[in-house]
Design a protein around this nucleic acid. Sequence first.
DNA 1: CAGTATAGTGAACAAACGGTCACATGTCAA
DNA 2: TTGACATGTGACCGTTTGTTCACTATACTG
Lengths: 196, 196
Amino acid sequence: MAKDTKERILALALDKFSQNGYDGTNIRELTSSLGLVKSALYRHFDSKEAIWNALLDEMIAYYEAGFGSSEHLPPVPDSLEGLVTLTMGMADFTIHDEKVVKTRKLLSIEQFRDERARDLATKHFLTGLTAMFTPLFQGMMDKGLLLRDDPAMLAFAYTAPISALIHLCDREPERTDEAIRRIEAFSRHFIATYKA
Amino acid sequence: MAKDTKERILALALDKFSQNGYDGTNIRELTSSLGLVKSALYRHFDSKEAIWNALLDEMIAYYEAGFGSSEHLPPVPDSLEGLVTLTMGMADFTIHDEKVVKTRKLLSIEQFRDERARDLATKHFLTGLTAMFTPLFQGMMDKGLLLRDDPAMLAFAYTAPISALIHLCDREPERTDEAIRRIEAFSRHFIATYKA
DNA sequence: CAGTATAGTGAACAAACGGTCACATGTCAA
DNA sequence: TTGACATGTGACCGTTTGTTCACTATACTG
């Protein structure tokens, strides 16, 4: 119990905030879950709001480093089936990675009260996936795998339904298997529609 | 200032809760906005949670009476352009109707803490629109307007992206015009893809 | 007119909240 | 050994929270 206390606070804050919201989480409960007393928290953060801001900084940095970076773009699939495989791999990760799940839930809860949360929510829920799949579809058109079309429109049409099913998993985890099956069914229907 | 106080409380609770969340709203602020003193509220509701439950009852009833009822199904369009018109009309309503907007925001905020809110959120965000458009697409296939395909899959593929853009309006109202343009562009792209 | 609900008031309450402070401990360098 | 720094403790503070209660004013009913 030493220098990593700050990180443990942040991790637990993400957990609690994503469950009960910022206002629904109190400092006593948060610190006692770490085996600390509330006043100890103020050695690491100036205030409750400082925890929130640090958490947002971390979420933004995590997003930029991962999904947001152009270097992390997956390779253009060599086949239609490759698109399904890629999609299912990404879906599996984003549905089961605890940190990502909690981040999405927290953004859903706080998106209307904090401007930075709002902007990050738009990236997570809308623009991020579209931006990632647009060059993929462009590449698959260039390879003659898909019909020539507006790649950005296709990426939006492809990712938005998948995103809706990911939200379903966040909301009703017991329907995760159903959602994953529907993502795969949708993916196959999509390529059946747009295959060259 | 008489019998409608209860309804005025509920209306303002929807407004406040959808902005700051249940935990982020306090009774003094809520009642003083109505020109009352906090204790007056307890003539109409037993507790703060009772307001929340009554609000949920109302939202559920409102949904069932409107979007959820099979009687309110719009007529099957007679042309592809008719589908665009129908879609834009519904989008315009759901984006601009204050009560519906606030309901969606509230469900986004509280979906992880209340089971009934969770279930209603799934209807609002996923199953509701799909269930409404499935028979429409079935009818348009029967009329020879659309290619024969799985109507439920098509309805999902059609409504999920539109739903994502509606969420964008809730989150960033200043982008409403952009979102409406994108809904129409998506709708036209969709019918270009699936027209018979 | 008397009587009784109904609706609103203002003071008071205990509990929970975020935050501060003087103090105790442990670590490590000079 | 000493002094400085980081970390954790427990008592305490002022404020805000949801809620209660005795009381008043108005309106309807017999």
